[in-house]
Design a protein around this nucleic acid. Structure first.
Lengths: 208, 208
DNA sequence: CCATGTGAACAAATTCACAGCA
DNA sequence: TGCTGTGAATTTGTTCACATGG
């Protein structure tokens, strides 16, 4: 077991996938599972699965495998899904609205606590659990709700300045949906979700 | 210059990013650029940039740098963005609708040619450039439009069977938005866009 | 000269293979 | 015995450093 910051992003990404797989197995009523079986089912190498888990301490029983329930609980705890994460969304356009509605009812570990938009038309509209507020109130909304995650669904041109403002206002991570390469703050974990890049990757393999 | 299939996915992903950066530079009226400058601007190592480009052949001028326009054109060609890619979308819910509208007017290289949904309520509604058709017509829609890319925006439960059907019907790549780990066909390039996994990654680093 | 293109050095990630424990 | 946990080997990806050529 080592410090969080030296667990590689690739590993963290897989931990999240493992948890999802385990939940499927839980639903099927399975109680024990070996790295072998998990690997077979989900196309993951058994050794890699064990290595990844090693970052979180010893989780299995030698000669037997893993207890599905307790492993899922452990992963969930290590991924920080026990606590509630408050999110603020900037930009209630097509994509922004879809994302906000995706978190519709606030029961999961990720809760949308504020949505802001610069379009006066949109202000006051209900979206998921909240009401769209004016863009100018972003900072104050973050301070008031103590949101830790920012979701960036603004047009490309506005992405960098909005990102900077989110960072300034004290958000700890940002999920950026705008199709731009952000100049990122070192202190803030940032992930990009970029439709066009994914499509262009696919297109690459379609040539010829 | 080597075969497409042995260009690593990481490289392809970056090629797509490079193209975006080059387009920004084009808009700024820049005609020449060195790997050094590009690296400085976009946080990419100059050597890596050159290595990545090497997969596509010699693109630069020694002692000078790269011609922004011709490099952009070359990248665009190699990424397969000269041709039009026909996409079919399955599942016109919140996210599906947002994605369909994102490709609203069909002028880019990616064109939405069909949308199907199983909800009778939604059938017949206009969405972007097309009209929502019944889910049963998926196969025939793919055959008729000769769509090569499938976008999967159905609920998790339906994802695997829909994926299989897309593959069966002859789609060559799939972009999966459903929060499941698909059992993938070897012949079909598949990418996942998974909001929850991204959020869980961010959450991991928020623990403590 | 100067920046590309590239083989050689290095680093990271994954797989192998086996010791150690239930 | 059987599967985990892990060091060692391998593969993959990145950076270095320099020869090459405009």
């Amino acid at each position: 077991m080592s410090a969080r910051s030296d667990v590689s992003p690739l590993t963290v990404n897989r931990l999240s996938i493992y948890l999802r797989c385990l939940r499927m197995l839980q639903e099927q009523g399975l109680r024990q599972v070996s790295s072998q079986e998990l690997g077979r089912c989900f196309g993951i190498s058994p050794a890699l699965f064990r290595k990844d888990l090693a970052h979180l301490g010893e989780m299995g029983i030698r000669g037997v495998g893993y207890d599905v329930d307790s492993l899922a609980a452990n992963l969930s705890r290590h991924l920080g899904l026990e606590r509630t994460h408050r999110m603020v969304l900037v930009g209630a356009g097509n994509l922004g609205s879809a994302v906000a509605r995706y978190f519709g009812t606030g029961d999961g570990p990720f809760r949308m606590v504020a949505v802001v938009d610069s379009d006066p038309e949109k202000i006051g509209r209900p979206l998921g659990d909240v009401t769209v507020r004016p863009r100018e109130e972003l900072r104050q909304a973050i301070e008031k709700t103590r949101a830790t995650i920012g979701l960036l669904t603004v047009p490309a041109e506005a992405a960098q300045s909005t990102y900077d403002e989110l960072v300034e206002a004290g958000v700890l991570s940002v999920l950026n949906f705008a199709p731009v390469h952000l100049r990122r703050s070192a202190a803030v974990h940032t992930r990009n979700v970029d439709l066009r890049i994914h499509l262009e990757e696919l297109a690459f393999y379609l040539v010829r």
